[in-house]
Simulated scan of single mutants.
Amino acid sequence: MPQLPGELEHQNGAAYLPDGERPYYQPVGNEETVFKAAYRQGLSLVLKGPTGCGKTRFVEAMAHDLRRPLITVACHDDLTTADLVGRYLLRGDETVWVDGPLTRAVREGAICYLDEVVEARQDTTVVLHPLADYRRQLPIERLGVTLDAAPGFGLVVSYNPGYQSVLKDLKDSTRQRMVAIEFGFPTPEVEEGIVAREAGIEPAVAAELVRFGQAVRRLETGGLREVASTRVLIAAGRLIAEGLSMRDAALAAIAGPLTDDAVVGRGLAEMIDVYLTAPH
């Protein structure tokens, strides 16, 4: 069923309509220009970069600028083709077809964003191939039909090449159908502004959090699950805005999520004591 204006549907993938205020995104290069040029040419995009660097917010901002609905799918190991395309379900005494998020986007001319696409099984992502190239079509074998993408449809996928193993990577046949945009963490000055705005804290506090985050990113240790992302710095800032001390906020929002290793955790706590000294 097509979405009505202003309707926000969450079944089989979170949908976002680009009404109201633009999602806050601070560009760090020419990524907005590349995205919009690719979209206008009907090209699919792959966003590559570390977790928490702003890829999802970027896509939300682009959907807002382009005035297109956005349907987001968080990919995972158990994601099947049917989860993306659709399936028959029992409703009362009858069996009905229910579109998956990818099919909804194709029919409605929405942007479909597959977050961390390599977490999905490779036999699932193969369904993207005819959509990602010049055909812009979605075959639905269960219905015996092939859908042409409606005007305005766009396909965007993302993944973190530094985190994924060699066993979880995009097939060459998939990546070569897409325009790639590389993401990294912003410069300290830009990141400080992002953290201050998103967390609602003073610029000086944001600057200390960013300085600590950069120090964590320079660490070379196998005990860290990820580096300190802009996302966790914002989370720490929000705790500080609620009255927590910088130390308690950093332990809870930065050190805790980054490692389960006791030794590494103690090392991060010592770094917090060195870098985050201001009382708040």
Rank of each mutant, 00 (worst) to 15 (best):
M271K: 07
D93G: 00
A37K: 06
L147A: 03
G193V: 09
I272V: 14
G29D: 14
D248A: 11
L170P: 11
D83Y: 00
G193M: 05
I194T: 01
R57W: 12
G256K: 05
D115K: 15
Q41C: 13
G54A: 04
K48L: 13
I194A: 00
G54T: 03
T187Q: 12
Q137Y: 11
L8H: 09
I140W: 03
A196V: 08
G109D: 06
E198P: 05
G222C: 10
L70R: 04
V195K: 00
E270W: 07
A15V: 11
D78E: 13
Y25P: 08
I71E: 02
H129V: 13
D148I: 09
G154K: 04
P5C: 10
Q3I: 13
V28K: 07
K55E: 10
A110T: 03
S245R: 01
Y24I: 08
G6A: 05
R135Q: 15
A180T: 15
R197M: 08
E242H: 04
L114F: 09
M271R: 02
L147P: 04
A228Q: 01
D93I: 07
C112N: 05
M178R: 06
E208I: 05
F58H: 06
P279S: 00
N30F: 07
P139M: 04
N30K: 12
Y39K: 12
Y88V: 14
P279I: 05
N160A: 02
A14V: 15
E182H: 09
Q164K: 04
G162Y: 13
A110S: 13
P279N: 03
G29H: 09
V216W: 00
A250T: 08
D19F: 14
P186T: 01
P69G: 09
G223L: 04
D273R: 01
G162C: 06
Y275L: 15
V96K: 02
E60N: 08
P161R: 04
S165D: 15
L170H: 06
K171T: 10
D172R: 09
A204S: 10
V46Y: 02
D260I: 15
I111K: 02
L17C: 02
G20W: 10
W97P: 12
E270M: 14
A262C: 08
A253I: 03
P186M: 05
T230G: 04
G49Y: 03
V85N: 01
L233V: 04
L276E: 01
G222L: 13
D77N: 11
F183A: 03
A249L: 00
F35M: 09
E208T: 03
P23D: 09
G213F: 05
R121Q: 13
T146V: 14
D260N: 11
N160H: 06
P279Q: 05
D93S: 12
W97M: 06
H76C: 12
L17R: 12
E220Q: 10
G265D: 03
I254G: 01
D172C: 06
Y159A: 08
Q26M: 14
I201Y: 03
E198Y: 11
E21F: 09
L17D: 04
V85C: 09
E202R: 10
P151K: 10
L167H: 14
S229H: 01
A215D: 07
T124G: 08
G92F: 13
C75P: 09
A61F: 03
A14Q: 02
A207Q: 06
L219V: 10
